[in-house]
């Protein structure tokens, strides 16, 4: 389950920012994840809730926004919704983005 390593990296940074802000509790964590990243959101949530037990991020909600890659034919400019290498026109299709995993915002409770 490679989601575990993602969850750990995420938790480390969340707890670092929480400490920096003297947070008492983490309520919500906002993420942006590229659609081409091979990650199962349910597994991520499960792993995160397991490893955050006993920390102030326990019970925090993960809010995920998915980001689409740009898939476009380099010859005719046609855009696609799915990964494909060659366009009907014979042109090579370029694929950009869709691979990010960003922590954007944390909602936390402070004194």
């Amino acid at each position: 389950m490679h989601e575990l390593s993602y969850a750990q990296a995420l938790l480390d940074e969340v707890l670092r920012l929480a400490e920096e802000n003297d947070a008492k509790k983490i309520i919500r964590i906002h993420l942006k994840i590229g659609e081409l990243l091979l990650i199962n959101p349910e597994q991520l949530k499960f792993c995160f809730s397991a490893i955050s037990k006993g920390t102030i991020a326990e019970d925090a909600e993960l809010v995920i926004e998915f980001i689409k890659p740009k898939i476009i034919c380099t010859e005719c400019g046609r855009e696609f919704d799915e990964v494909i290498g060659i366009c009907d026109c014979g042109g090579i299709v370029s694929i950009e983005g869709g691979k990010d995993f960003l922590l954007k915002k944390i909602e936390m409770e402070v004194e």
Binding site: L17, I27, K105, E109, V110
Partner: peptide, 12 residues
């Protein structure tokens, strides 16, 4: 207690 929002720009 009150709630705050902290912006982050962290690449996981």
């Amino acid at each position: 207690m009150h709630r705050i929002e902290v912006d982050a720009e962290y690449d996981v």
